[in-house]
Design a protein around this nucleic acid. Structure first.
Lengths: 164, 164
DNA sequence: CTTGCTGCAAAAGTTTTGCACACGT
DNA sequence: ACGTGTGCAAAACTTTTGCAGCAAG
């Protein structure tokens, strides 16, 4: 299921720098910066919020950027290692990714009715996370926080339904 | 990968009641309480923390309780609908479940090195969750909170490694 | 009896992999 | 030139489904 996302911080990001970051990372690893990798990064940058592998494939096919499914998956791994995207756990059947370069880890508010996803900024979450980790002697690396619930819209329409 | 779990609250649960709860739920739905369903519930109750479908299958095969994979998956769904178990999102490739009947929703602290999982009790999380929801007009139904990091043990052994 | 349940095997869906060829460096 | 990368198709894996026979109510 494609997920519609309302990004909370409409920060038009540093597209040019990110491309450079990725190229640097790839070369550092002794790998090659190919046109496919550039195209995939581009497609990722065009996504506003959470996305799936299949979605990238589909959208790239619309344009003139044809890459194979295999290459997409392989590149997504590199983008994760480079710290440019992060895997978001929304359901356990399919991977969801998100552009997170330079962002603090956030959480997500998911409407179970409409599928809408809202980002939760990190100031709410980090203090809690760090306190919990300290208590258990853990060193936090990252986190996933998802709240499932009913969005205002869904609550309204379920009110309507229950009045019928 | 099988996940080792250290449950924080070692509450020996109400095994007898839970079986009754499940039977009641199944019958309420006009379904049948079969021996397979009872056996699967039993296997679930024997698990201390997070578990996977394949794990149940394997462990039941060790005993004399042979059920098909298909029946396990079908029963896990009913157990979720009955509110007895909950799906825990630890990775996006495989479903993980946890016995949650009568428990408040918790979070999990996952060690990326050892795979150890520690439960985070809900008092830490609920106030934060509710405040976030109120702010967005959401009605919370459930949540998933997972922190990935290094457990004290893993930190110690990575210290050792880096000294080598 | 009637209706739902099980097991099997096949199907479905996502992600990975093997291989021959193509392309950066 | 060398060593990686790519595309394709097949493989791997988890989860779902169709169906014929079985069992609970």
């Amino acid at each position: 299921m494609p997920v519609s996302v309302s990004t909370q911080t409409p920060d038009e990001p540093m597209i040019q720098p990110l491309c450079a970051v990725f190229r640097r990372f790839i070369k550092q690893q002794g790998l090659k910066f190919t046109s496919e990798r550039a195209k995939i990064l581009n497609a990722v940058l065009s996504k506003k919020g959470v996305f799936e592998a299949e979605e990238l494939l589909y959208e790239m096919r619309q344009g003139n950027d044809r890459v194979s499914k295999a290459t997409i998956y392989r590149t997504l791994k590199h983008l994760m290692e480079a710290g440019i995207i992060t895997e978001v756990l929304l359901d356990s059947r399919q991977s969801h990714y998100e552009l997170t370069f330079g962002k603090k880890p956030t959480g997500h508010l998911v409407c179970v009715e409409t599928g809408k996803v809202v980002e939760i900024p990190s100031p709410w979450l980090e203090p809690v996370r760090d306190r919990i980790c300290k208590e258990h002697g853990f060193e936090p690396l990252s986190h996933r926080f998802v709240i499932y619930g009913l969005s205002p819209e869904a609550r309204r329409s379920s009110d309507i339904k229950s009045r019928e």
